[in-house]
């Protein structure tokens, strides 16, 4: 029995990205393609997204020209591959406030957004610090907090304080304080609906950006695999590893159940297809009775 269908939807990508920025210490390794994605979750009467991508309107041209982000497509185009329109989305879980995860709020007019209170509070504190400390605000779009205020004004912003069980049926939210960001959140889907579930999927946000973060070759220390956090964090690598351990415990140490959204190799592990817009759709699992979005 599975309650939810889960799809990872690529909405843009950049090439030639240094692996060392994704896996701390991988200084000698090749450059890779980095997809930008959000995750669609459908079931139990809900259409939910984990993160919303960034708005091409505000920064897209600049990003494309300066940083080589290519093939950006709007949510209407990306979601249509699964037969969904942005207006259908009723719930959005924001894993953290970086521009590529929380930058496109306006495209989802009917959704209620969930974000960790600490994420917004601490970013705002950072913004009040002197210019010398500006490094701490990297990847933050000031519009994100404006969006949060706008959502709050119309009752569409829900603060999350730490963990929240059954925010929608079978879906739990978890806080990883002072990790990738100040209040990063990860999402656990108990897909059999059981309290002690045998079918958990973890949607990790940027706490796990690639398979290698959780399944790094551990032969150097005589273990099969080891945890190896990404290199980009304003918090603590220790806290990221502790969050990874919590995720792994929840999925019974079955690493494939932890889904990274910046992983270009999802298609090697899950059924997937490339859309007409040259973007990958990966089908993590299907709800009972649901039709595949990747197989004809």
């Amino acid at each position: 029995m599975a309650d939810y269908s889960i799809h990872v939807l690529e909405y843009a990508r950049t090439r030639n990205y240094p692996k060392a920025a994704l896996v701390y210490g991988a200084f000698e390794e090749v450059r890779v393609t980095l997809p930008y994605s959000y995750i669609l979750l459908r079931g139990r009467g809900h259409v939910a997204l984990v993160d919303v991508g960034y708005s091409h309107k505000d920064h897209g041209k600049y990003l494309a020209e300066k940083y080589g982000i290519e093939n950006w497509r709007p949510p209407r185009t990306v979601l249509s591959e699964c037969g969904i329109a942005p207006e259908d989305v009723d719930t959005v879980f924001i894993t953290h406030a970086h521009f590529d995860h929380f930058g496109n709020v306006e495209d989802f007019p009917n959704a209620t957004f969930y974000i960790q209170r600490e994420e917004i509070e601490r970013w705002s504190w950072v913004l009040s610090l002197p210019d010398r400390m500006r490094w701490m605000t990297a990847s933050l779009d000031p519009a994100s907090i404006l969006h949060a205020a706008e959502l709050s004004a119309v009752g569409r912003l829900k603060w999350v304080d730490g963990c929240w069980e059954d925010v929608i049926p079978g879906v739990d939210l978890h806080l990883a304080r002072d990790s990738h960001t100040y209040g990063s959140m990860w999402v656990a889907v108990r897909n059999d609906g059981a309290k002690v579930s045998q079918d958990v999927w973890v949607l990790a946000g940027d706490l796990v950006v690639q398979f290698d973060n959780i399944e790094r070759d551990g032969s150097l220390i005589d273990v099969e695999t080891m945890y190896n956090p990404g290199a980009q964090t304003v918090g603590s690598y220790t806290n990221i590893i502790i969050a990874m351990a919590a995720m792994m415990k929840l999925v019974g140490h079955e690493a494939r159940r932890i889904i990274p959204v910046h992983e270009a190799r999802l298609g090697e592990r899950f059924p997937s297809r490339i859309s007409r817009e040259d973007l990958r759709i990966s089908e993590i699992c299907l709800a009972d009775g649901a039709v595949s979005a990747v197989k004809s």
Partner: peptide, 11 residues
């Protein structure tokens, strides 16, 4: 947004 030190600047 100051993205000079953001993830995408790595490319």
């Amino acid at each position: 947004a100051d993205l000079r030190r953001a993830c995408c600047s790595c490319v």
